[in-house]
């Protein structure tokens, strides 16, 4: 089992949701986050004083998957989220030790 966490552009979330549902992925968790990698921020001006805003709005999605689905999901995320410009985001893939469906107590792949 793997846990995939991807940080993407906020305006790409609808495309990504559509791409994931096309390959049969039903569950995901989405968080509105702020951060930056190589992308530069912008300046905001309040009463003439400039403030550097370098933490940019991003969206973080998390998915827990059986190993067999990881490749197709990763390529779907890449395809849906890529613009080719700095700031497209990153995909992190982590080993997942266990998973429990709280309602039934199922564990492992069955609970995904």
């Amino acid at each position: 089992m793997k846990l995939i966490a991807a940080v993407i552009r906020p305006n790409k979330i609808e495309e990504l949701k559509a791409a994931l549902s096309d390959i049969g992925i039903q569950g995901l968790t989405v968080t509105e986050v702020r951060g930056h990698g190589r992308q530069k921020g912008h300046k905001e001006i309040f009463r003439g004083k400039e403030y550097a805003v370098d933490l940019l709005p991003k969206v973080r999605i998390e998915l827990a998957l059986p190993d067999s689905k990881v490749d197709s999901v990763v390529s779907a995320i890449e395809k849906a989220s890529r613009t080719g410009e700095v700031g497209d985001g990153k995909i992190f893939i982590m080993n997942l030790e266990d998973c429990i469906r709280i309602r039934t107590g199922e564990r492992g792949d069955e609970a995904l």
């Binding site: 552009r9 702020r34 912008h42 300046k43 905001e44 001006i45 309040f46 805003v53």
Partner: peptide, 17 residues
């Protein structure tokens, strides 16, 4: 249009965390 007109046109954001 993607990033929002507030910062692009006016250099201000409506809500700052």
């Amino acid at each position: 249009e993607d990033s929002g007109l507030d910062v692009d046109q006016h250099g201000e954001g409506g809500y700052t965390f």
